[in-house]
Amino acid sequence: MWYYEKKLQYPVRVRECNPRLAKYLIEQYGGADGELSAALRYLNQRYTIPNKVVGLLNDIGTEEFAHLEMIATMVYKLTKDATPEQMKAAGLATHYANHDNALFYHNSAGNPWTATYIASKGDPIADIYEDIAAEEKARATYQWIINLSDDPELNDSLKFLREREIIHSQRFREAAQILIDEKDQKQFF
């Protein structure tokens, strides 16, 4: 079970109403390499991974939900009071027609989230390597969004999230090594 702390992992400040930026950011909400995919991927894989790395998948999967919440806050703030005209000008008329200003789990091209974005092969090495790749892809996605964004306060939060992907990748790399190393042998550094 989870305990919920009623605050964000890192503050989210948005300088101005900017639905176009929200359109790009939604990639990290309901996209293939987004936070929803990450959370569900890790929390699902943890059942069949060797004991030593279950806790890691549990912790990172949980943190991904905290990131999802930050992305949701950004998208919400960027579109909160956007008029239908502003949504249309940002290329979000098709979103507005279906959802008004509500959030939805789809990517920046409007494709709905699908479970095919995540994998669980049941092979620990295959799964952990998939997770490392997922973290690097999410890191790259944050880079491209930072390159597109001109909101310095929003970029501050995005840089935090990018750094977290780096740390997660590091931990998955260590997990892979734990699974690869011969058991019961002395470690020499």
Partner: peptide
């Protein structure tokens, strides 16, 4: 540490 997103400077990677 919070600002950088990590406890360890060795992992901090500024972007851009």
């Amino acid at each position: 540490a919070l600002y950088c997103g990590t406890l360890w400077p060795a992992f901090h990677d500024p972007y851009p």
